[in-house]
Design a protein around this nucleic acid. Sequence first.
DNA 1: TCCCGTCGCAACACACAGTA
DNA 2: TACTGTGTGTTGCGACGGGA
Length: 228
Amino acid sequence: MRRADRLFQIVQYLRGRRLTTATQLAGWLSVSERTIYRDVRDLSLTGVPIEGEAGVGYRLSPHFDLPPLMFTREEIEALATGLRMLQAWGSPELRRGVGSVWAKLAAALPERERIALERTPLYAPDVAASYAARIGPLLDGLRRAIAARDVLILDYGDERGQRSARAVWPLGLFFWGDVWLLGAWCELRQDFRNFRVDRITTATSSGAQFPDAAGRRLEDFVRSMQAS
DNA sequence: TCCCGTCGCAACACACAGTA
DNA sequence: TACTGTGTGTTGCGACGGGA
């Protein structure tokens, strides 16, 4: 049993009984009493209100209960900020996901953490609404093509406005500051290429699926980007 | 005196980096 | 790739102290 699991089990045991000795806990969890004492000390240091009395045993404060979700303030701010960024820059499907995740979090968090979530002072203003509205549906189509390993035919315009049709293996989508990029294996160039999603006019499935080929996977693409 | 929590110390296991 | 050394975390043993 992992130590984290054991710590959780100790709290569960203490919640269900009025008094529990280290000997009993050691027996249930198949560890030494010394280990139980150390675990109880560590739990106490992290804020779990365990009261221990020599000759008596351990008991958990009656007012203590494990909240459904426990996050630090930094974790809550990270979640809120990430969700707001996706809300501003994500596709319609991802935006729906953001709304649903936010509602689940708010429902599951204790009152204090829920307020902290809603009052997180980090925002991603919706300044790119027209951009998101324009590429959103395409972004969802690309996400599905990546999952299904569909070979796509892109109608793509480069920075000079020259259009071309490319057969590509879509590998991943990357948010690059203010634009989304499609990372893909280009059959024409026989190499990895980045395609700005806002320059893709259409992305049509060729009907074929691309194989899981060594050297042409997402991790290979990421490595090649890091090396360049 | 007994029961039980606390603490110091040593042993062990595991992950990781360095090297041949 | 395999081996070795090192650091870190975990565990158990035993001694000690407090409360009933």
